[in-house]
Amino acid sequence: MEATIEVAGLRKRFGRVLALDGMSFTVTPGRVTGFVGPNGAGKSTTMRVIAGLDAPDEGSALVGGRPYRSLRNPLGHLGALLDAGALQPGRTGRDHLLWLAHSQGLTARRVGEVVELVGLGSAARRRAGGYSLGMRQRLGVAAALLGDPPVLMLDEPFNGLDPEGIVWMRGLLRSLAAEGRAVLVSSHLMGELQDTAGHLVVVGRGRVVADTAVEDLIAAASGGRVEVRTAGRPEAMAALASAGATVAATGRDTLVVSGLAAERVVALLTAEAVPFSEVTTYRATLEAAYMDLTRDAVEFRAEAGAFADDARASTGAVAGREAAR
């Protein structure tokens, strides 16, 4: 069985709201795939469709090549954390895991293992009604890991975690991916996925806005720009412009250069004897890159009528933006 999630052309309408509008992407094993987008972009609905809870109007969602509802021992194929609050308050965390284990033919020993793995410890023997949101998230992750599945799907797992918990969660997600699992993690805050996700599926308005490696996204958002701090601004502008770069003054002694690598900028300025104190390759943060994309998604929303069938609104968006630059 392949450790993948394949989503193709999902459409789903709730009354007058089009929640999914041609959602398509693939989650591959061995890396953490971030599933990001503003609230209401269709992340949770997509995950519910993948898990067979909601039926799409059109399209398909496959886990390891098969629809979830056709799976035997389903928790051995896909571990999902969809709603950490879905607990019976009067039942202990351990007993919650125990009934799930029994439903898959697993034993109490496996429950003990996952309780250790998520660091729930003695809290597992307390009633879940008294759990903090962070403890519920850990319990939810334990439930997702119960069947030791090759595919994991976690909806907003960072919600309610303290800083220590966030570090733990990042490490866990990375190690799960390193074991060869496919890991899909949704978030509405890109910063949470920094240093964790290797690949991103960015969604807006029910479809994929960008499907890209994190490195490519940052590079695209950075746009190959170089910042120069110099006392001789006019000379520097002249020298760089004559070498074919686009130069813009951003302050009394700062410039932004596009179209030249940092090494070429240093070489040119040195050759022309223009004094400079700093040459920096501008690197966008993941957050900034994401804001760029989702701002566009918001713009698309404002012009919904004009862009409803525009290919740019789909996976071609990043390529289109890069070409325009």
Binding site: M1, E2, A3, T28, P29, G30, R31, V32, R72, N73, G76, Q104, G105, L106, R110, G147, D148, P149, P150, R174, A177, A178, E179, G180, R181, A182, D195, T196, G198, H199, A213, V214, E215
Partner: peptide
């Protein structure tokens, strides 16, 4: 950062699943 590669072997669980009855 652990980005993984496309050549990574997919995960195989050592857990033995019983009959789904």
């Amino acid at each position: 950062m652990s980005t993984g590669t496309d050549t990574a072997a997919p995960y195989r669980s050592p857990l033995r699943a019983g009959r789904d009855g």
